Amino acid sequence: MQPVHQGRAAEKVLFPILLAKGKVAISNMFFDTTRAHVELAGARAIDCVVAEAKDPSKRAPFKGNMDVEKMEKIILEYGPENVGLVVMTSDLEALSIGLYEGLNEDYLKYRIGQMEYLAARLDEAGIRACDMVLIC
């Protein structure tokens, strides 16, 4: 275990272990520093955010969701063995809903349940999944 002071420092330590040239990392939408850490490790960062997120004029309740169909196509295109990790920035919806709702236990169970479901499906495909709540 390597203690670090924040998430970006953890990425700098963890990503070179999971990623290398020829590997891809998939996210709903990478932060710029996270994308840089993926690329510094030699891998390719691929955003799989839903289409409405890329249209500023389109109103939607939440634009940070993963485009699951696109993610599945990328996994098939590159092969599960070449997907170094999947990063979900799950806290974005909590921020859009607000702090009060984000602390509601039922809501937290719902959001964590979504992450656990996705992680289980990725695990079945032989792909490691990391998120900001549970580190691999």
Rank of each mutant, 00 (worst) to 15 (best):
Y117D: 04
R121P: 00
D55T: 05
E105Q: 14
L134C: 06
L40G: 00
D32R: 15
R35M: 13
V83L: 10
E81Y: 02
R111I: 02
A120H: 07
F30M: 03
L122F: 13
K109G: 07
D32Q: 14
E124S: 03
R35T: 09
C136R: 12
L18P: 01
Y117R: 06
K21H: 09
Y110H: 12
E11G: 13
G102A: 15
D106L: 10
S57V: 06
E52T: 01
Y100V: 12
A25I: 07
P61I: 09
P16F: 11
D67S: 04
A36R: 11
R44I: 14
K23E: 11
R35C: 08
N104A: 08
M1T: 11
E69S: 11
K58L: 11
L103S: 05
F62Y: 15
V4A: 13
F15D: 08
T89H: 14
Q6Y: 10
M66F: 12
E77I: 01
R59I: 07
M71Y: 04
G126M: 02
G22A: 03
N82A: 09
M1H: 11
V4P: 05
L14P: 01
V13K: 13
R8M: 10
S96C: 04
G102P: 01
G84V: 12
S96M: 08
V133Q: 13
E93A: 01
M1Y: 05
A9V: 08
V13M: 12
K21L: 02
A119K: 15
A94V: 01
I26F: 02
K70Y: 09
Y78S: 05
V13E: 15
P56S: 06
S96I: 00
I97Y: 03
I135C: 13
I75T: 04
V24P: 05
F30W: 09
Y78W: 11
L92Q: 05
D123C: 06
T33W: 13
V4C: 14
E116V: 07
C130E: 12
N28W: 00
F15C: 10
Q2G: 03
L103P: 00
N104K: 14
V50E: 08
P3T: 10
A53M: 06
Q6L: 02
K54V: 05
C130P: 00
V50I: 14
G22F: 01
H37V: 09
R128Y: 06
V50A: 04
R111W: 00
I26E: 03
M88K: 01
V38P: 01
M115A: 06
L95C: 06
P56W: 03
V50C: 03
R59K: 14
T89C: 07
V86Q: 06
K23Q: 11
L103V: 00
F30D: 02
E105P: 15
